[in-house]
Amino acid sequence: MSLFELFLISIGVSMDAFAVAICKGLSLPKMSWKHALVVGLYFGGFQSIMPFLGFLLGSQFKDAIVSFDHWVAFILLGCIGLNMIKESFSHELDDCEDPSLHPGQMLLLALATSIDALALGVTFAFLQVKIVPAVSFIGFTAFFFSVLGVKVGNMFGAKYKSKAEFAGGLILIFMGGEILIDQLFGI
């Protein structure tokens, strides 16, 4: 996997965290960098941990499915992407209603926004990605977009939440298709 592909995937899986971070920014009467950094650390941390756990899980059974692993990667990334696109059309703003940064709430939000990263980690096992640099890059990207999301939410409001989820979903579907085409046709 090239650095550019990893960059695109990192952006794709960071979009859920970005969307929730926008909601956190909406709830702040005044921009607080401390709050933005806390949100970034939760989301960036979970976006690093979950693909690592998925990689460990996927490594356990990758040899059994090596002949069709590209289909697994395509299906997983496609499903994650389609789900993100579906969520982008949802007009629920439930995550925007509570402005707290309570650790229990942040853990749940970080876990919820990183479930797709767990599946991505399984895909990484099939693609034999160097996991430590990959999850570090993903975590940093999610951290950056989460901090940015708090700032954007505080400045502009909820109108970017659905666009971020939609763009992230498209990126993941594109990457799944690219993996499939590369394996089937060697392009």
Rank of each mutant, 00 (worst) to 15 (best):
M1L: 12
M1P: 08
L3Q: 08
F4G: 05
F4C: 02
E5A: 14
L6N: 03
L6K: 08
V13S: 09
M15P: 00
M15V: 01
C23L: 02
S27V: 07
L28G: 02
P29C: 04
V38G: 02
G40D: 02
G40L: 00
G45W: 15
I49A: 14
I49L: 15
P51Q: 05
P51I: 09
L53I: 14
G54C: 10
K62L: 08
K62Q: 15
A64T: 10
V66L: 15
V66I: 15
H70K: 00
W71V: 14
F74G: 01
I75Q: 06
G78V: 01
G81K: 14
N83A: 14
I85S: 10
E87K: 15
S88K: 08
H91P: 04
D98Y: 05
S100P: 05
S100G: 07
L101M: 12
H102E: 15
H102Y: 12
L107Y: 11
L107I: 11
L111Y: 10
A119S: 09
G121W: 13
I131Y: 09
A134I: 12
S136I: 13
S136K: 07
S136P: 08
F137T: 10
A142V: 12
A142R: 10
A142Y: 11
F144N: 00
F145N: 02
G149W: 10
V150I: 14
V152F: 07
G153K: 10
M155F: 10
M155I: 12
A158H: 10
S162R: 14
K163N: 05
F166N: 04
G169S: 04
L170R: 01
I171G: 04
L172I: 03
I173F: 01
I173T: 02
I173E: 04
F174Q: 06
G177V: 06
I181S: 08
I181E: 06
D182N: 13
Q183W: 03
I187C: 12
